[in-house]
Design a protein around this nucleic acid. Structure first.
Lengths: 343, 343
DNA sequence: ATCGGGATTTGAAACCTTTCAATCCGCAAA
DNA sequence: TTTGCGGATTGAAAGGTTTCAAATCCCGAT
């Protein structure tokens, strides 16, 4: 049982073969097709491996065998619980397929995203799932073109150059506002931004559709645009909302995600505005903290785990099925009503 | 610009060399020491690479060059914001050292942790940071013994067989309770569990120390033991707290982490208990959601990013410095007072 | 004794890149 | 004209594993 200094060369199959008094091919068989080798030999080899502290060199394995045993998910922001839930779904599917999942965090930076993608490509991972900073970026096409299966998660692309898995944001927006219409609201705020995000736009679109369908005048649906979808921005939006003269002030807010909704809720509570009596709030994503908020939040739930799981299945299909065709899967969101909207 | 089918063999340096009309060594030089090759040749080679969609094979590179360019962090639970903050710190340090960070999520399972460790070892990553399910597990020693640098993050080990980075939990417990003592509390609850977690025990120890030092009788510090450190368990603990007869009921609670504290807070608010007037709450970790809670939470802050950054530096030192000696770094926590304890 | 055939074991080739000593070339100095 | 020099380029070797056709072994059957 040697203690190897970090960096020291580790035992190779050749060393193991020598120590066990067998050929190199036999050691490999013990590793890959243990049934083909006699029990005694197998045992002898395994003992040698343990004695030498043998660790199979994955680079060499992969180089020769050609296939890697890992899947990767490049997350937009690991600090957002939504994405960690998605990753749990991916992990489940990966595990079922016998693959390991590695996560990379681009932390909202296109450069980091790019450098992760490059390395993963060079590592010849089985496939890459990515929630990109910018779904239209040509860098994604490059990766796919060079032969690595790519699936876009929780975003869509105008063209259909790869598989994607997302949730119907227009419908989600509609559900949220229909819920508020049902409760008799006549003045509603949509809180979210920045405007260039597809999701922000789609959810607003749905909100407007529902509003119009209910026969409400367009101008009674106010858009409070934020510069990011964060808790801090939600609080800030609360202040802006409070600044609107009471006569015209919306009595309900539909927020583009739960972080914003939580910020808004916090502002309301700390400034004495009762929720939902004076202000109803609908969030989006239904992250765990939504249900656990001081006033449990009504929210539009996305099937987060399923999102991840499906994405993983698509990428695996692309990696192994020669007749694979790209698909754009669109899931249906669901409204979860809680105290923040029930009087 | 070929579109390569997934799985199809990709262009190798040899193909590039042929296409560019140069030798194989020159292509390698373009890749690794661009300054050594004349501008015209370099350009020619680069064009060939682009045309063929060449992607360097990292396995082969690593096999030959012997060194990998990645660091790994095996997280206990990616869904806990505390750990994602730690990972951000690691990422910063890794980036500074020119390495990529990959994350693996063991999701509280020792088996998953083990299988990730094994794969990382086989990949010959530069080093592994890990917040283990069980810090005493011999599996960690095995990995280190076989030559992969290992640093334990946010946990400590009874022996000193590897580097570790943690925060002084006893001190943290003391700070929390001293704060409550300062505010005149005479009955306090410690909420957390399960008891076998080192952190749960250490924080309680600190709490008891401070309580005794203030001359309070031991029996006025109640331990409400939970079965996990989650929001749901916090709510549950709230119910148990409420069940204590008013005369003997603690008017302050020190929770073993913020998730528990948030659950407790939620229970208090929804059952009409005013915070902090009727119940003061102190959390632990100071995650982002603590400050953003309905009643902003007083919490014991751990230097999360610094924790990660330091761990990364230690593992890099171990990987590259022949005179490396193991170190146990212990950071000092800090109390952040907010509304949940100020009358 | 000999043979047949399944179970084991063997060893060389191949995977792709990096490294490094050797070669080449053009040009200035002698 | 020859030498010497430095920058650019070359090509073979090495790195650890898997694969696979070929060789060997071992038994029971003839």
């Amino acid at each position: 049982m040697p203690h190897r200094e970090p960096g020291a060369r580790s035992a190779s199959v050749k060393d193991v073969a020598a120590a066990a008094g067998v050929s190199l091919g036999t050691v490999s068989n013990v590793l890959n097709r243990p049934d083909r080798v006699s029990p005694e030999t197998r045992e002898k080899v395994q003992r040698a491996m343990a004695d030498l502290g043998f660790v199979r060199n994955e680079s060499a394995r992969q180089l020769r065998a050609g296939s890697s045993r890992t899947l990767a998910y490049v997350m937009l922001d690991a600090a957002n619980p939504f994405f960690t839930d998605v990753s749990a779904g991916i992990d489940t599917a990966a595990e079922a397929a016998g693959l390991s999942l590695v996560l990379c965090n681009s932390r909202n930076s296109a450069e980091r995203e790019q450098s992760h993608l490059t390395l993963l490509e060079q590592q010849r991972v089985q496939g890459v799932l990515v929630t990109p900073v910018d779904p239209e970026s040509p860098a994604l096409d490059e990766v796919a073109r060079r032969g690595t299966p790519v699936v876009v998660v929780d975003r869509t692309r105008s063209d259909q150059s790869f598989c994607s898995v997302a949730v119907d944001d227009v419908l989600g927006g509609r559900l949220a506002v229909e819920h508020l219409v049902d409760r008799g609201h006549t003045r509603v705020a949509y809180v979210g931004g920045p405007a260039h995000l597809g999701q922000v736009r789609d959810r607003l679109q749905g909100a407007r559709d529902a509003w119009a369908a209910a026969g409400r005048p367009a101008e009674s649906l106010t858009w409070i645009e934020t510069s990011a979808l964060t808790v801090a921005e939600g609080r800030e939006a609360g202040a802006r909302l409070a600044g609107i003269p009471a006569r015209r002030r919306p009595a309900a807010a539909f927020c583009a995600n739960d972080l914003v909704a939580l910020g808004l809720l916090q502002h309301a509570i700390s400034s004495g505005v009762r929720v939902p009596e004076e202000l109803s709030i609908v969030g989006y994503d239904d992250i765990e903290f939504a249900a656990a908020a001081a006033v449990p939040l009504t929210s539009v739930r996305q099937p987060r785990q399923l999102l991840g799981q499906t994405a993983a299945e698509l990428v695996l299909d692309e990696a192994s099925n020669p007749d694979h065709t790209h698909r754009q899967v669109l899931f249906t969101p669901e409204l979860v009503a809680r105290s923040s909207t029930q009087g």
